[in-house]
């Protein structure tokens, strides 16, 4: 690597002569070693999924969760250094709580992404800290209802609180991905970690922003997320893995606006379908898999 031996890569917040911050790039390397995370945003909600590589048989099955709830309507999943991810989640929860204290209402997903993007970026600015060794995917469903103020006791005037334009949509599903540099974008489908290349290729095949009838339902998105994690998993390199998935729907959907773990029955069904589709396409897919490996 060109960075090594130059001395410009030995401290955080140092620019190299060609304008790069190598420590941030190295942090990205830590992410690329972590289990694959995927987020899918469809019209009805958001699905988060993660491949948890089982490093030891002695781990308690199903007990070590990697997808975290940040507020009732918000979930976070991350790839990379797990303790860094925990720190990120702690901070996100603090932000969500502070927002509630100030505005008496839940934090919009976009604002949380912005706050956390700013937080990650701050860790690239100083020599006294190191960047986060994670890329985080933040999913949320901002309430489409006229949401009550926290602590509200009555209905107020029966003619309505006002302040909302008619025929305009409020709230909805949102998905963001935040990188170690603090950079973040909104996504229809996001993937990070070891298997991101394969996962991205699969995500691009889905109809996620379509207004047409073909666009994915939330339940289909759950099944696609499971399949994509299975596709992205590299049998030859890694041992066993556990699939963990969560979802967030609108008020009228299955989770009633809350971020929840995907029910066991649905997850197992999704896994069954994922394994099946993997077997079916095994023969045809052989060449393509070789290509993916080349890219890694």
């Amino acid at each position: 690597m060109t960075s090594i031996g130059t001395g410009y890569d030995l401290g955080n917040s140092i620019f190299s002569p060609d304008g790069r911050n190598f420590q941030v790039e190295y942090a990205v390397k830590a992410v690329e070693n972590g289990g694959t995370s995927v987020g899918i945003r469809c019209k009805e909600g958001v699905v988060l999924a993660v491949e948890k590589v089982v490093a030891s048989k002695l781990l308690k099955p199903g007990a070590n969760k990697r997808i975290a709830t940040v507020d009732r309507h918000l979930g976070v999943v991350y790839s990379g250094m797990v303790p860094d991810g925990r720190h990120f989640v702690d901070r996100a929860r603090d932000e969500a709580r502070a927002w509630r204290d100030t505005f008496k209402s839940p934090i919009p997903t976009a604002d949380l992404a912005s706050r956390m993007g700013g937080y990650m970026q701050a860790y690239t600015l100083y020599q006294s800290v190191r960047p986060f060794g994670i890329t985080a995917i933040v999913g949320g469903f901002d309430s489409e209802l006229e949401s009550p103020v926290d602590g509200e006791v009555g209905q107020g005037p029966s003619v309505g609180a006002g302040g909302k334009a008619q025929d305009k949509d409020y709230g909805g599903p949102f998905l963001y991905m935040i990188e170690p540099s603090g950079l973040y974008w909104g996504y229809y489908g996001a993937a990070t970690g070891k298997g991101r290349q394969a996962a991205k290729a699969e995500l691009e095949k889905l109809d996620l922003n379509g207004d047409g009838a073909a666009s994915l339902t939330l339940e289909q998105a759950v099944k696609e997320a499971a399949r994509i994690i299975y596709v992205a998993h590299d049998d030859s390199k890694d041992k066993d893995f556990e699939l963990e998935m969560s979802w967030i729907s609108g008020t009228n959907g299955p989770t009633k606006g809350k971020h929840q773990e995907v029910p066991k029955a649905l997850r197992e069904e999704a896994e069954r379908l994922a394994k099946k589709s993997l077997q079916d396409s095994d023969d045809e897919d052989d060449d393509k898999k070789e290509d993916d490996k080349m890219e890694e």
């Binding site: 420590q23 190295y26 942090a27 070693n33």
Partner: peptide
């Protein structure tokens, strides 16, 4: 120190 990543992303 614990604030420097190696080129492989290790600490």
């Amino acid at each position: 120190d614990s604030v420097t990543f190696s080129p492989q992303g290790r600490i």
